[in-house]
């Protein structure tokens, strides 16, 4: 019984939250890695692209809630998501036309593009704060739990409750669908194949008649969709705050780099590696150990390796270790 209790506590506080967070990071990292693969620069505006997509979705959600439209037990935000994606797609395509295209034609060095993306980051960040303000916004509605802690206890008779939030379930399901669709697109369609070809060898791709502007446009569209979905899922699961999205940049980049920049599979793997280590290292294992160990050995302290405020240190430490041991990432990425 104690072992079961320990297992449930571990599931409840580590495995489920980390899976949801990992899915969010993976979606964010996929966007970063695609831009790196096709456009060949690290996009620092990605966190704010996520924030922008989430913001539009929130506004549409509010309008829908005001009009009395809802999805029943599911959050209304899912209905608003396509609008968010469309608005973000317009924004990034516009940014590309006005800003990035010029440097692409000039064949500017990647680091210049990184600095340009810093400028874009400022503008997007200002835009988001301008429209929705810097405060916390909650927009999740519908049923809060798929399984609530109390129901679980009644069902199983265990001491530990297992809460499975709707937002976590939706995060995982949406992420699986999105990733499946993305890989189907990249591996099975003509456009997807041309994107991969462009990423592997630009000159050869150009020689075989692939239109670079079209590849770039499709990339931005996919990135807009990925960023919006990641941003909305994160906002549903936690809450929406522009500053937090800026800070997400670090774990998102860490995921992409740990997995291997430019490699979509790596981005997903990296996302889960980062998420699981963040949650594991900052979780207090007192409860779990209390069930597993005999009473005489039960720990006095919290058995928490680091307080939650140091979660950035965890992504950073993993990043450094991976870079030192395997500079191209766990799944072979490219290094330019």
């Amino acid at each position: 019984m104690d072992i079961l209790n320990a297992l449930v506590a571990l599931l409840n506080f580590v495995v489920i939250p980390a899976t949801a967070y990992g899915a969010q990071l993976a979606l964010g990292a996929l966007g970063v890695t695609l831009i790196y693969g096709i456009l060949r620069f690290s996009n620092f505006a990605h966190g704010d692209t996520m924030a922008f997509g989430a913001m539009v979705t929130i506004l549409v959600t509010w309008a829908m809630q005001g009009a009395g439209i809802s999805l029943g037990p599911l959050p209304t935000a899912l209905l608003a998501l396509p609008f968010g994606i469309a608005a973000t797609a317009l924004l990034v395509l516009g940014t590309d036309k006005i800003v990035y295209q010029f440097y692409r034609r000039q064949k500017a060095k990647p680091v210049i593009l990184v600095i340009v993306s810093m400028g874009v980051m400022f503008v997007m960040n200002g835009l988001v704060r301008f429209v929705i303000g810097p405060g916390d916004q909650r927009f999740a509605d519908g049923e809060r739990f798929i399984i609530s802690a109390r129901n679980f206890k009644e069902m199983t008779g265990l001491n530990e409750g297992l809460a499975f939030k709707t937002t976590q379930g939706i995060t995982i399901v949406t992420a699986v669908i999105t990733v499946a669709a993305l890989f189907w697109f990249l591996n099975r369609t003509r456009t997807g194949k041309s994107m991969r070809a462009f990423s592997d060898n630009e000159d050869l791709a150009l020689l075989s008649g692939i239109n670079p502007e079209r590849v770039v446009m499709v990339t931005w569209l996919i990135v807009a969709a990925l960023a919006t979905i990641a941003g909305v899922l994160y906002g549903l699961d936690k809450s929406f705050k522009p500053f937090v999205y800026l800070q997400l940049l670090l774990p998102v980049f860490a995921s992409a780099v740990v997995g291997g920049l430019g490699n979509p599979l790596g981005a997903i793997g990296g996302g889960f590696v980062i998420a699981f280590s963040e949650v594991t290292v900052t979780y207090a294992f007192k409860k779990v150990l209390g069930y597993l160990l005999p009473d005489s050995l039960a720990p006095d302290g919290l058995v928490q390796l680091l307080t939650t405020d140091y979660k950035f240190a965890v992504s950073f430490a993993i990043l450094v270790i991976v870079l030192l041991i395997k500079p191209t990432g766990l799944f072979k990425g490219k290094s330019i």
Binding site: S42, V111, F312, A313, F316, L319, V320, L323, L324
Partner: peptide, 28 residues
């Protein structure tokens, strides 16, 4: 010592990380 031998993007991300960690230390 750790990040300079690597690519330039990696130095950027490493410095971004160390800055957040320093602030976390000061805060906590």
């Amino acid at each position: 010592k750790t990040a300079l031998g690597l690519r330039s993007d990696y130095l950027a991300i490493a410095t971004l990380g160390i800055a957040e960690i320093i602030i976390a230390v000061l805060k906590n």
